Amino acid sequence: MGKLLSIWNFIRRHKYLITTLTFAIIIGFLDENSIMHRVAYAREISHLQEEIQKYRNEYNESTKRLNELTTNPEAIEQIAREKYLMKKPDEDIYVFEEDK
């Protein structure tokens, strides 16, 4: 009984400290909006923003390439030669592959 009474007296003397620590633990680690979750969400947001920027750059490059193809017939010939290995009748094509 003496041990229980001493624990009760400790709790009565330090009730504000115990309440504050309990609140900090709940908010910091256990809550769904905890600090740990917020850090993870911030990392995910930055990763997604980098991905968005990558796709925007890719879109801009593709748009430039499309505009070039619609206005420049030499660009169509270049793509036919590079991608599809087309050639004129009097030409020879040599394909070099890089070792990875």
Rank of each mutant, 00 (worst) to 15 (best):
I7V: 15
E68L: 14
T19V: 07
K87N: 07
N57C: 04
D31W: 14
A24F: 12
V95M: 03
T70D: 02
F23R: 02
Y94K: 08
Y59E: 13
E50S: 06
M86Y: 08
I45V: 15
E74P: 04
Y84C: 04
L30C: 13
L30V: 13
G2F: 08
V39Q: 01
N60R: 10
H47C: 04
N33L: 04
M1Q: 05
Y16P: 00
R12C: 10
Y16N: 15
E82P: 04
W8T: 13
L4M: 09
F29Q: 12
S34V: 00
T22D: 08
H47Q: 14
L21P: 03
W8H: 09
E51K: 04
R65M: 08
R13A: 09
I11S: 10
R43D: 09
D90C: 04
M86K: 15
E68C: 09
Y41C: 07
F23N: 00
D99E: 12
H47W: 11
G28E: 11
N33G: 10
K83F: 11
Q78G: 01
A24L: 15
M86H: 08
V39P: 00
E68N: 13
K15Q: 14
Y16M: 12
I18N: 00
A80I: 12
A42L: 09
S34P: 00
Q78M: 12
E44N: 04
N67W: 11
A40H: 02
V95K: 07
Y16K: 12
S62R: 08
E91W: 09
T20S: 13
K100R: 09
S34W: 00
F96W: 03
D92S: 05
K88H: 09
I7M: 11
R38V: 01
S62F: 02
M86W: 10
N57Y: 05
E82I: 05
E50Y: 01
S6D: 14
K54G: 05
